[in-house]
Lab assay of single mutants.
Amino acid sequence: GKELVLALYDYQEKSPREVTMKKGDILTLLNSTNKDWWKVEVKATANDKTYERQGFVPAAYVKKL
Rank of each mutant, 00 (worst) to 15 (best):
1 G>C: 15
1 G>H: 13
1 G>P: 11
2 K>W: 11
3 E>W: 13
3 E>G: 09
4 L>F: 15
4 L>S: 07
4 L>Y: 15
5 V>W: 06
5 V>Y: 07
5 V>L: 10
5 V>I: 06
6 L>F: 08
7 A>K: 01
8 L>Y: 03
8 L>M: 08
8 L>R: 05
9 Y>S: 08
9 Y>M: 11
9 Y>N: 08
9 Y>R: 15
10 D>P: 05
10 D>Y: 04
10 D>S: 08
11 Y>W: 10
11 Y>Q: 01
11 Y>R: 03
12 Q>E: 11
12 Q>G: 07
12 Q>T: 15
13 E>R: 13
13 E>K: 12
13 E>G: 15
14 K>N: 09
14 K>P: 04
15 S>V: 04
16 P>A: 13
16 P>H: 10
16 P>C: 12
17 R>D: 12
17 R>G: 15
17 R>S: 11
17 R>E: 12
18 E>H: 06
19 V>R: 00
19 V>H: 01
19 V>A: 05
19 V>K: 01
19 V>W: 04
19 V>S: 02
20 T>F: 06
20 T>R: 05
21 M>A: 02
21 M>D: 00
22 K>R: 12
23 K>V: 07
23 K>P: 02
24 G>N: 06
24 G>M: 03
25 D>C: 07
25 D>M: 12
25 D>P: 00
26 I>T: 07
27 L>Q: 00
27 L>T: 01
27 L>S: 02
28 T>E: 10
28 T>Q: 09
28 T>G: 07
28 T>V: 15
28 T>N: 06
29 L>E: 00
30 L>S: 02
30 L>M: 06
31 N>T: 07
31 N>Y: 06
31 N>K: 06
32 S>D: 15
32 S>G: 10
33 T>C: 14
33 T>E: 14
33 T>M: 11
33 T>W: 09
33 T>R: 10
34 N>G: 09
34 N>Y: 09
34 N>M: 08
34 N>K: 06
34 N>D: 14
35 K>E: 10
35 K>R: 10
36 D>E: 12
37 W>M: 05
37 W>V: 02
38 W>F: 06
38 W>Y: 07
39 K>E: 13
39 K>P: 01
39 K>D: 03
39 K>Q: 12
39 K>A: 07
39 K>C: 15
40 V>N: 00
40 V>P: 00
40 V>I: 05
41 E>T: 10
41 E>R: 09
42 V>A: 13
42 V>G: 09
43 K>E: 10
43 K>C: 14
44 A>E: 14
44 A>G: 12
45 T>L: 12
45 T>C: 13
45 T>H: 11
46 A>Q: 14
46 A>I: 15
47 N>W: 12
47 N>G: 15
47 N>T: 09
47 N>L: 14
48 D>A: 07
49 K>A: 12
49 K>Y: 12
50 T>F: 11
50 T>I: 14
50 T>Y: 13
51 Y>Q: 09
51 Y>L: 11
51 Y>T: 13
51 Y>M: 09
51 Y>E: 10
52 E>W: 15
52 E>S: 14
53 R>H: 06
53 R>M: 07
54 Q>A: 10
54 Q>I: 14
54 Q>N: 07
55 G>F: 08
55 G>N: 01
55 G>Q: 00
55 G>K: 01
55 G>I: 04
55 G>P: 01
56 F>E: 03
56 F>P: 01
56 F>S: 01
57 V>A: 02
57 V>F: 01
58 P>T: 02
58 P>D: 02
58 P>I: 04
58 P>V: 02
59 A>E: 03
59 A>W: 02
59 A>H: 02
60 A>W: 09
61 Y>A: 11
61 Y>N: 04
61 Y>P: 02
62 V>T: 03
62 V>Y: 03
62 V>S: 00
63 K>F: 09
64 K>D: 04
64 K>R: 14
64 K>F: 09
64 K>N: 06
64 K>W: 07
64 K>G: 05
65 L>S: 04
65 L>V: 12
